Amino acid sequence: MRIFSFARVLLLLFLSCFVAIVSPTVILTQNVTNTVEDSITVFPGITIQITCNVTGSNSLSWNMTGSTESPAISEMFQTDTLGGFSLMFLSIDGSVISSTATAVTSSNTSITCRDGTPGSSISATIDIIIKPVDPQIYMIQNVTSDSSNITVCPNDPITFSCRSTTGILVWALDDGQSISMAYFTSLGEMVTLGDFELVVTNVTILSLEIESTATISSPVTNFTLSCHTNVTNGLNRLSSAIEVTVRSPPVPVSSVNVSEVCYDSISLNWTDTINSIDTPQLDHYLVSVTAQNTQTDLIVNGFNTSLTGLTSNEQYTLSVVSVNCAGNSTPMTVQRTIMAQKPSVPTLQGLDLLSDRSNTSIATISVRWELQIAYSLLSLVIVSWFLV
């Protein structure tokens, strides 16, 4: 009795394995993530295609939530409809048959593919969930880390970041070039747009968020870069753009004036009606002093300076240049000759004291001196005396 029971158990196990081997299977895939999912989330208006592969059967049927229809698909190139879905028999390859159900999504639904064998209950279902229509686009750059327009130096690399909540974003240049980046693009995959390198940096499939960067290593001319949501599938286009101004060399100062010349120094000032310190047009001024093929440069953050340590009786060429990261302006130049020598100190040559005997409270002192330098070289002579 035990032997018979044991054999019976082995037979049942064998038959169950055989049934498992030959039982039909149903697999559903979709074009949103190109994987097998129980549910997918999409925006309204996006075209979705469900593919059903049935193994071990020669027919299949489709069914969807809220519908009593169940169209059977069994012939090559057979088509049918189910609600808003278009059904098509794709192929039969040995023991595998394929069919697609395609629709433009508008509301939540579920669609099921079943083995068409009479009496079979084998099936697979996928839920289609419509994401609320709230497309967003956000774009920033790494120079000031915000979304405002910027001014940059030539050949300085810039990176722009864009985030879209529609599953697709489009980079576009003002010359008409554009390229799309989608949520199913491989992370880290690099494509180019003009001189830009575009990379998808983050994807959140269920919320259809995608982030991408656009990097240009050597900007030389002004441009506008924009990032926008896809304009297809019934969504309103949202766009974010940043204008980039690439600096050019500043204009020259208006005039240079020498305000004072001494035996070892020169003071000068200049007028600049266009440039302004600490703006994108100007970083600083460069004042150069040249004599006998020797040049000394001085960085100045204002509109005047004094140059000291010069040599008497020497002619100097003075120039003022406006400077920013794009280069220098043409110089504004003047020439001046330093005084021949330093004025000498006057020396006393005599002293006479005359007394008014009638008024003992008054004393008169006469002082006489001689100068060792021409009067033209003196701006002021000061005489001081003390009564003791």
Rank of each mutant, 00 (worst) to 15 (best):
C262S: 15
E69R: 10
C113S: 02
G167S: 05
F223T: 11
C113Q: 00
N202S: 11
R114F: 09
T102F: 00
V381Q: 13
G119R: 10
S5W: 08
L193M: 09
F85Q: 04
T224P: 10
D283S: 06
T33K: 11
T221I: 15
A103Q: 12
S95V: 06
S248V: 10
T317K: 10
Q292H: 12
G309A: 02
V246R: 04
G94W: 03
C113E: 01
P154C: 02
S288V: 04
F386R: 14
L11F: 06
T55Q: 05
T360H: 14
I168F: 01
V32F: 07
S95Y: 09
A124R: 01
W270Q: 08
S16W: 04
I277K: 05
T294M: 09
G116W: 02
V42P: 04
V191W: 03
V54N: 06
T333R: 09
A101N: 03
L193A: 08
T245G: 08
V383H: 13
V381T: 14
W369E: 09
V258T: 02
I122W: 00
V200N: 07
S121Y: 04
L377Y: 11
T79R: 14
A241P: 07
M1F: 06
I373S: 13
V345G: 05
I140N: 10
G45H: 02
P24D: 08
T68E: 03
P24L: 06
P280H: 04
P250H: 02
S239C: 12
F14W: 03
N53Y: 05
Q295V: 11
I179R: 06
L187T: 11
V104Y: 13
F6I: 14
L60W: 01
V26C: 03
G83T: 03
T245L: 09
F18R: 10
E260K: 15
N236R: 13
S178K: 09
T229H: 00
Q335P: 05
S344L: 07
N324Y: 00
D356R: 14
T364I: 13
F386L: 12
V246W: 00
N269Y: 05
T125R: 07
I266F: 09
V203A: 01
R357P: 09
G309C: 02
P132T: 13
A340C: 08
T79K: 14
S329A: 09
V289G: 06
M181G: 08
L380R: 15
S59M: 13
V251F: 03
T311E: 10
A326N: 10
V170T: 06
Q341K: 15
S186F: 05
S361D: 15
T204E: 14
T33A: 13
T213M: 05
Q292V: 12
S355C: 02
T144L: 09
P346T: 04
S384L: 11
V200F: 02
I128G: 00
S57G: 05
T360I: 12
N301Y: 06
T35K: 15
D93R: 06
D146R: 08
E243Y: 07
